[in-house]
Every structure is written in C-alpha cells, then in structure tokens.
Deep mutational scan, measured.
Amino acid sequence: MSSSSWLLLSLVAVTAAQSTIEEQAKTFLDKFNHEAEDLFYQSSLASWNYNTNITEENVQNMNNAGDKWSAFLKEQSTLAQMYPLQEIQNLTVKLQLQALQQNGSSVLSEDKSKRLNTILNTMSTIYSTGKVCNPDNPQECLLLEPGLNEIMANSLDYNERLWAWESWRSEVGKQLRPLYEEYVVLKNEMARANHYEDYGDYWRGDYEVNGVDGYDYSRGQLIEDVEHTFEEIKPLYEHLHAYVRAKLMNAYPSYISPIGCLPAHLLGDMWGRFWTNLYSLTVPFGQKPNIDVTDAMVDQAWDAQRIFKEAEKFFVSVGLPNMTQGFWENSMLTDPGNVQKAVCHPTAWDLGKGDFRILMCTKVTMDDFLTAHHEMGHIQYDMAYAAQPFLLRNGANEGFHEAVGEIMSLSAATPKHLKSIGLLSPDFQEDNETEINFLLKQALTIVGTLPFTYMLEKWRWMVFKGEIPKDQWMKKWWEMKREIVGVVEPVPHDETYCDPASLFHVSNDYSF
C-alpha cells in the first residue's frame, strides 16, 4: 500500500475517532442539560424564597438545595474531563465542556465548601437584617432599607448623617470582619485549585478570550484597560469633585475643607457610591423646571407596579418582548415591611425554565424608576439567551450584562422620554440651562461612581493577591479612598471594622 493511502486511512481513522468522541460528548451534555435544568431551578427557587423571606427554615432549605446542586456539578465536572477539548471540533459542544470542566467552588473539600456557603449566607443575613438603634431610645431601631437609606438620601443634618453612617459600619461591618477574612482565604483556595493566581484573578477570567475568531484578550489586559480608563475620566471627575465640594461648603460651611477631601457621609447614600441625591444641593440653574421627576410621580399617584409597567412599555417600544406572566405573578416589587424580612437590594433573577423575576423594595422616586429599567434590562438579556444550552446561558461577561441594564436606564432618564410619559409637563422646553442641569444630574450618577468602583475593586484585587496584610485592611482602604476618590472618613476606623463589606456587593460576593 502506498504512503499516500496510509495517510488517507490515518486521517479517516482520526476523523472517525473525533466524531465518536464528539457524539459521546453531545450525548453526555444532553443528559447533563436535562438534569441540570431541574436541580438548578430547585436551588434557585430555594434561594429566592430565602431572599424574599429570611427565616431559619428557608436558609436551611437553601443550603440543602445548594448542596445538592454543588454535588451534582462536582460529579458532572469530573465526568466532563473525559472529553479532551482538543478533539472537539463543534464550537458549541467545546464551549459547554469548557464551562463544565471549570470546577468553581466544587473543587473544595465537602467541609470547606459547606463552610464557604455558611459564611456567604451568614454575611448576607447580617447585611439584610442588621439594625441600628437610637442610643437615646433603644426601642427605636432602623434597618438599612428603608430607614438608614432614607436618612442618607434626604437628611441635611450633618450629625444625623454621621450617626447613620458610623452606626451601620459599627453594627454590621464589625460583625462581618471575621467572616470576610475567612471568605478571602477560602475563595483564594478555590481559585488556585482552578489554576488561577487568586480570587481576583478568577474574577478577571470572566473577561478572558482565547482564540475565538482570531481574537484574544487576557486577564492582564483587563487590568491595563481599567487603569487606562480611570486615567481618562480622572480630569472630568476632579472637576466634578471640586464643583460638588464648593456646593457642599454652602450646605455644611464649617465641615468642608476648600482644598481637601469630601467627608464620606455627605455624598448622597450610605457609601458615597452614587452622588445622585446631591442634585438638589448642586443644581446649576435651580429656577428651571426640576428634571428630577420624583415629585411628579408622587403627585400622579405612581406605585411600584406603574413604575415597572412603564419600564416594560419602554422596552417594547424598542422592539423587545413583554415580561412574562410569571414575572408579574412572582416578582417581589415592594418591601414586605413587618410581614417578613427580605433582601431589599435590587436584583434580577433568571431562575431557569423561563422563570424570570425582579426583587426590589421599590420606592416612588426617579432613582428607583431608573433602577427598574436597569434591572429589567438584565431580564431582557436573560430572556434573549434563554434558548441557548444551559451552560451557555450567561452574558458575554459581567460588565456587558451591567452595560445592557445601564444603557436602558440612561435612555429612560432623558427629558424627551420623561416628557413623553407625562412626568415633565407638555410645555417643558429644553435649552442650554436645562441641558446643563440634566448633564450634571447624569454626571453625579455616572462620573461620580467610577472612581468609587475602581478603587473598591483595586482594593479587593490587592487583598486577594495578598498585597495588603490583614492587619492593614482598613488603613489601606482609607488611604486609597483619600488618594483615588478624594473622600475622607469622618471618624477614624481601626482594624475591627470592615467598611468594604458594608456594601451589598462585597458582603454578597459580587464583583463589579
């Protein structure tokens, strides 16, 4: 037999072997998808029940369902290793196997995995149920939502704001400190077992692309791009910072340095994350009609249902689908009040099986009107990829998912749209002054938050990498806050605090 014939037969044999492996992989994935749908849905439903009704029974049910899901994933991840990716030609099959071969938290021992889940659930519970009591009246206690958040959004009393700011960190942050220390250790162990340098590197892996249509993007490039983007917006932020400082000097004349940092408790919310609520103090042309339409919403008797129905109309107007019937029947759109304790931070849920929901303790404000559009943007994205195989139902990356939500809320905030839905009067006219007011309001929300987020994530990356010793977490946190964000702590904090974890995203294990 000629050498060319042998070569042809060899190629046929290799192709047949690849085809056999690929067919086996497809069969394996079909079985996995069928089983995963049910187990993931049960786990998601148990998590939803806990988040909307925080009880010991629900946390136990959530843990049990989560353990079943984790055990299943660990088993299936091991089985998926049997299919070598280099022998799979079908890109859809390869991407699913690649996702499943990534072990995630299931790489930890059973004891450590359970401990990590306990830590995460405990931190979430402390954050959502933590109360601050009035020292003069111990029976008068406030949760973060709505009590403390209400103070931080609306109060102009310097000392009341300081009390709310400090009490939240003292009551909740200190409880979270030992848990967060354990969390860092276990998450790093999980990341390294998955061949990442640390948990920050694991997060950045979400943005990594290897040879898809000839395109590559590394975790290191992400760090470079983040640094570059921050340097680009820094001059604009510094101008905004100086303008806000001048306006705060008028409101709090004896508390603000004309050349120094801004006190952290005066920036519009509990964390200084969004400066939106400073608009009334900083509006350049106050004689113009108010483009913050909160009062109009209240006057027109809007409620949470109306807010979300208007958001749905907005999405339908640009060619996107209505929310499902189940969305309206199962979402929690208002604070249950004293009936039950719930996690009030707005979140969009894709539970699986076409079950999409939003959890939000909606208030009738323009801020929540825009947040509703943001969260519904997440749901629209979830619905758009719902037909994909189970392992591919995700956003391109976390940042893109947020961008989908944010672009919709930005569009909904324009005076033209607000006028079209009757929240600005029919005779409202846009001119240079109203446009400047609008742009300032947008800058308070968007530009003001960028250094906050950059600095927070930089601190977390450094902590996970071990570049900040545990006994210097708070020292470095406030050094970076002053240097990068231009914000100063109103009272000193020692290493018993854990100020970063006083933010939902940190205590609940979300990256930005």
Score class of each variant (00 low, 15 high):
V93R: 12
W48C: 09
M62H: 11
L73Y: 10
D30F: 12
D38C: 14
I54W: 11
Q24V: 14
A65N: 08
Q89D: 00
L29C: 13
K74E: 09
S19W: 01
Q96W: 12
A46W: 12
K31C: 15
N49M: 02
P84W: 13
N33T: 05
E22W: 12
E22I: 08
Q60Y: 05
E22L: 05
K31T: 15
K26R: 00
L39Y: 03
M82G: 01
I54A: 09
N49W: 02
E75P: 02
W48S: 09
N51Y: 05
L79F: 01
L45G: 12
Q24D: 15
F28C: 15
E37M: 12
Y50F: 01
A65P: 13
E23P: 09
E56F: 03
W69N: 05
K31Y: 01
Q76L: 02
F72P: 09
I21V: 05
K74A: 08
L91V: 03
I54K: 10
F72R: 07
E22G: 09
A25H: 14
N33A: 11
E56C: 04
W48I: 06
H34V: 00
Q89P: 00
Q89K: 07
Y83A: 09
Q98I: 01
L45K: 14
P84Q: 11
Q76M: 00
D30M: 11
Y41S: 15
K26A: 01
P84V: 13
L29R: 08
Q96A: 12
W69S: 05
Q96R: 12
E35Y: 13
H34F: 15
D38V: 15
Q42P: 15
V59D: 12
E23C: 04
Q96Y: 08
I54V: 04
T27L: 00
E75F: 00
E75M: 01
K26N: 06
I21D: 13
Y50N: 12
V59T: 05
Q102P: 05
Y83S: 14
Q89R: 04
F40P: 13
N90V: 00
W48K: 02
M62A: 09
K74F: 06
Y83R: 14
Q42R: 01
L29G: 13
N63Y: 06
Q42S: 13
H34G: 12
N64E: 10
Q89M: 05
E75R: 00
W48D: 08
K31A: 15
E56H: 02
D30P: 14
A25E: 14
Q76R: 00
N64H: 08
A71S: 06
E37A: 13
K31H: 10
Q60T: 13
Q60R: 07
K26T: 06
Q102E: 02
L29Q: 13
E57Y: 04
M82T: 14
Y83I: 05
V59Y: 04
E56T: 05
E56K: 07
Q42H: 01
V93C: 09
T20E: 09
